[in-house]
């Protein structure tokens, strides 16, 4: 988004926020409406991008092995395919589930800022609480060495978020939003941090795989080229096209770091907490809050676009 568009958006959000603040003297739920909505939308993009990485992690490892063997050429063995996987299937499922619950939590925040139907909120909070209990059970059952860190963090923070949701279901909406932001921010950020570590590993292994693929594509071309006059021009052209497409992917990849989005999500979450803690936010506070959400939205959109391009979706 350019500066003019950014300013226009800010101007469009400010009146609604300011009217509420002026009337109430403090940030009531409706003051959060637009920025929390933006937080929800951007979080959804980041969560989906991270899920795409984690989902593909084992495929990246498998493909790297398969194409490396083919390029040598060497025998492909199923037991070797299984050995190269980084996370177990259960480990990946638990992380994807945690991301889904995070998305539901952010969605609930958005509904708290927008909804006038406490019963719906209470039902959703209760449903999410049940899902979190199931997730806790799923995480507890993980046994892999690579799951230890995620298991430790998830085991610590999921009950805290669960307790918070219990409070949601029992109190008035006005208080629930502030309480949710203030109490939930830390455990939510810890959960994001744990997933971010796994996403970094996934990104690095994917970088490794894409880098190896670049060489395989160049080798394919060079093998044909080395035939000299016997080289097939059509094959040379097809291999050159494959190199070109591979280099495009490589270029797009450098901007598709899921950790950028997760870091931005943590920062936006902290901005929510800061804003929620203000008894009487002034114009500067509101501007800073809206800017923080805009900044998060920009990063989320950049990462989301790059990941989509990378995955060809």
């Amino acid at each position: 988004m350019n500066t003019v568009e950014k300013k226009r958006r800010l101007e469009s959000l400010l009146p609604a926020v300011l009217i509420v603040i002026a009337a109430a003297g403090c940030a009531r739920p409706s003051a959060y409406k637009a920025p929390v909505g933006k937080f929800r939308d951007a979080s959804t993009v980041v969560i989906q991008s991270t899920k795409a990485y984690l989902n593909e992690l084992n495929k990246v490892e498998r493909d790297k092995y398969i194409y490396l063997q083919a390029s040598k050429p060497d025998q492909i063995k199923i037991d070797e395919i299984e050995q190269v996987q980084v996370f177990s299937k259960d480990g990946i499922m638990a992380r994807l589930n945690a991301l889904d619950q995070l998305a539901s939590y952010v969605d609930l925040l958005d509904q708290l800022a927008n909804s006038n139907t406490p019963e719906t909120i209470k039902t959703k909070a209760s449903d999410l609480q049940t899902s979190l209990t199931n997730l806790s059970g799923q995480v507890k059952a993980l046994t892999g060495e690579d799951d230890k860190q995620f298991k430790s963090v998830a085991g610590r923070v999921l009950p805290v978020i669960g307790d918070l949701l219990q409070a949601f279901a029992e109190q008035a909406i006005e208080n629930a939003l502030k309480k949710a932001i203030a109490t939930g921010a830390d455990p939510v950020n810890q959960l994001i941090q744990a997933i971010e570590q796994d996403a970094t590993v996934a990104y690095e292994r994917r970088r490794n795989g894409l880098s190896a693929a670049r060489v395989i594509l160049v080798d394919q071309y060079n093998r044909e080229f080395e035939k000299g006059k016997g080289a097939d021009p059509a094959k040379l052209k097809a291999y050159a096209d494959a190199i070109s497409a591979g280099e495009d992917r490589w270029e797009a990849f450098s901007t598709a770091q899921p950790t950028d989005g997760l870091e931005a999500m943590k920062r936006a979450n902290q901005a929510l907490v800061r804003f929620a803690a203000l008894p009487k936010p002034n114009i500067t506070d509101v501007t800073s809050f809206v800017n923080a959400m805009d900044s998060f939205a920009n990063t989320a959109n950049r990462v989301g676009r790059a990941v989509q391009e990378l995955l060809g979706k």
Binding site: R207, N208, S211
Partner: peptide
């Protein structure tokens, strides 16, 4: 450390891709 190793691996790949396969 994982990232540092990754940087070296991608450098090695540039070198590998600049030499003929055999």
């Amino acid at each position: 450390v994982i990232k540092m190793i990754g940087d070296v691996i991608t450098d090695i790949d540039v070198a590998r891709g600049s030499l003929l396969p055999d």
